[in-house]
Design a protein around this nucleic acid. Structure first.
Lengths: 214, 214
DNA sequence: CGGGGAAAGTGTACGTCATATACGAATCGT
DNA sequence: ACGATTCGTATATGACGTACACTTTCCCCG
């Protein structure tokens, strides 16, 4: 499992073949792995839960629900940053790993501690996780494209953007987009993530404030 | 392309093989497709843009930015609901289809019309899209699991939840989750989507209100 | 109308994967 | 030291995407 994680970290999901994993473990045959894992899906399940286990989880909520959730989201994001494959794989398997459960339980505890029903807390947690995973997915895609085309430098990236820009200009009718592509500046990915997270937490806060909602 | 879309709609991405597409078009050979498409990725690009084209796009913004974005998000969601594969594929390809560009341009127009910079508008649009696609991805996963195990009835679903519940109880330490699994009620997917969308739009509204932000 | 060339479609072959099955080798407890 | 269990391999199969060379079909022009 560690070998599979290392492989996927370094070379992407596509490189994580049973053969490659076996070789990395010491020039074994691919079939040797099947002594320890039912099939590749089983291996993926292990990887997902192992990665989830890397997210530090306080033993119990601190006093402030908002910073509890904010911190958990940030730690989760850091993990998806270390393991870009996480966001890609998590949607391919039922979510039943023990560490995933404990993480969700933590969020539920924090939210119900503020008066939310469990049902509402599930929804809020789902919204926050959607944000985290969506962000992770986008960055994983960028990493993949980087790997595929020029990893060496930003030269090719610039060329790609220029090509896009050419398309946009040729299209006509997309002036804002064309303008932005000419000079693509703006929020960093981290700022964007924090902003979205704040929006969601603000919304949750407003709902927690009104008692006896539903 | 239409055949590929129909196949993916009906039987999932896994069934969308070049052979299956060719057969659906009239018992052709798989290789016949390569006269019209460079490779499968090219076909996927076409599918993505064709699906994006299904999202109705007003010629120009209406008066109310919020309902413009709300409507667009809802229409987009309806499309991802018709085409569950969309959310799965969109993250595997660079986002350069002309209809995608036009859709993004619409969002930028709406937001910059309210005083946002293009950079800020890009961020807001990304946040909303992340929500839409995350939601679509989750529902696609459910559809996939449904297809894979008992499509016939909810009996197997209940069994699966019961199994999860068993795990959760056995785990101990996850009381809220175990309780919810025993009686999984709460927001519908539509309610959850609308709630998250409102959170995001609220956040954007607050930022638009403050002039000269950054 | 008939011939020539482009367009359309096919057959075959290859490489990569995951994985089933059957077999051999190593190791460990007694 | 021996026998069983555990570990690893060899081989084969069936998807799949797709390169390449070939044949068929069709249409346009003289």
């Amino acid at each position: 499992m560690a070998a599979a994680i290392a492989l996927a970290d370094e070379a992407g999901l596509g490189a994580m073949t049973m053969k490659a994993i076996a070789v990395r473990l010491g020039d074994y045959s691919p079939m040797a792995l099947y002594r320890y894992v039912h099939n590749k899906e089983g291996l993926v399940d292990l990887m997902l839960d192992a990665a989830t286990a890397e997210i530090p989880l306080p033993a119990r909520p601190g006093g402030d629900w908002r910073s509890d959730l904010y911190g958990l989201a940030m730690d989760s994001r850091r993990m998806t940053h270390r393991h870009p494959w996480y966001a890609q794989l998590v949607h391919t398997r039922p979510p039943a790993g023990p560490h995933m459960m404990r993480r969700l339980e933590f969020m539920l505890t924090v939210l119900t501690g503020e008066g939310a029903t469990v049902a509402a807390a599930m929804t809020y947690a789902a919204l926050v996780d959607r944000h985290i995973l969506g962000s992770g997915l986008q960055e994983a895609e960028e990493a993949r494209l980087d790997r595929r085309y020029g990893l060496d430098d930003t030269a090719k990236l610039v060329a790609a953007i220029r090509a896009l820009h050419g398309l946009a200009v040729a299209d006509g009718g997309v002036p804002h987009l064309a303008g932005w592509l000419a000079q693509p500046t703006g929020f960093t990915a981290d700022e964007q993530f924090a902003l979205g997270l704040d929006f969601l937490l603000d919304g949750i806060a407003r709902r927690l404030a009104k008692p006896a909602e539903e």
